[in-house]
Amino acid sequence: MNDRLPHERGFHVSWDQLHRDARALAWRLQAETPDGGWRAVVAITRGGMAPAMIVARELDIRTVDTISVKSYDHQTQSAAHIIKSPDMDVVGDGAGVLIVDDLVDTGRTLEVVRKVMPKARVATVYAKPKGRGMVDTFVTEVSQDTWIFFPWDMALQYVEPYRGT
């Protein structure tokens, strides 16, 4: 039996924390800049958009595009498939391209993305063990059974006090 409350199973990320962690990701990526610099950032929508914007700003990358991969329906994961591709004339095989997402969970989404841009560098803010091998650079690792609550998924509200019952 699990005695934890639902909010205790999660890792809650505020906007401030996400901003700090995305900047830390950019600092790590600065050391990995390819010869000729980064040509573009491709954000994996929707979660990768905020971190990609911060990384693009910090690294002064002006070409930003998106790839939309659907693998979740609310909190249920299914097979990943692309529903919107980036401008392939710009990103090509991914050489000099930085792919950014908020989180790698199982790696299924990144597996699909890497097939489209096999030479791209993949970076996420957070990583879980099952998907960690699909990421080149990340900031924070969390356990596989942790659910990350991102700021765009939350609202401030009253929580009943835990009284040990």
Rank of each mutant, 00 (worst) to 15 (best):
Q75H: 05
R114V: 01
I99K: 00
A56W: 03
V112G: 02
V91R: 03
I83C: 04
D89Q: 12
D101H: 08
G107W: 05
S85A: 14
S68D: 12
I61H: 03
R57E: 15
Y72F: 15
T45R: 10
A95E: 12
L59K: 13
E111N: 09
I54S: 00
S71L: 02
H81Q: 14
R62N: 11
T66D: 08
V55Q: 01
L103W: 02
R62Q: 14
D73N: 11
S85N: 12
G107I: 06
Q77T: 06
I54H: 04
M88I: 14
V112R: 06
V55P: 09
V64T: 12
I54D: 02
S71P: 00
V112P: 01
V41G: 10
P51L: 00
A79K: 10
D87I: 10
I44M: 14
M49S: 06
Y72E: 09
I83V: 15
V97T: 11
T66N: 12
L103R: 05
A50Q: 02
D87N: 15
G107M: 02
V100W: 00
G94W: 02
E58G: 03
I61F: 06
V41M: 12
V90E: 08
S85Y: 12
A80P: 01
S68H: 13
G48M: 04
T63C: 09
I82A: 10
G92D: 09
I82G: 07
G94I: 10
K70L: 08
R46V: 14
R114N: 11
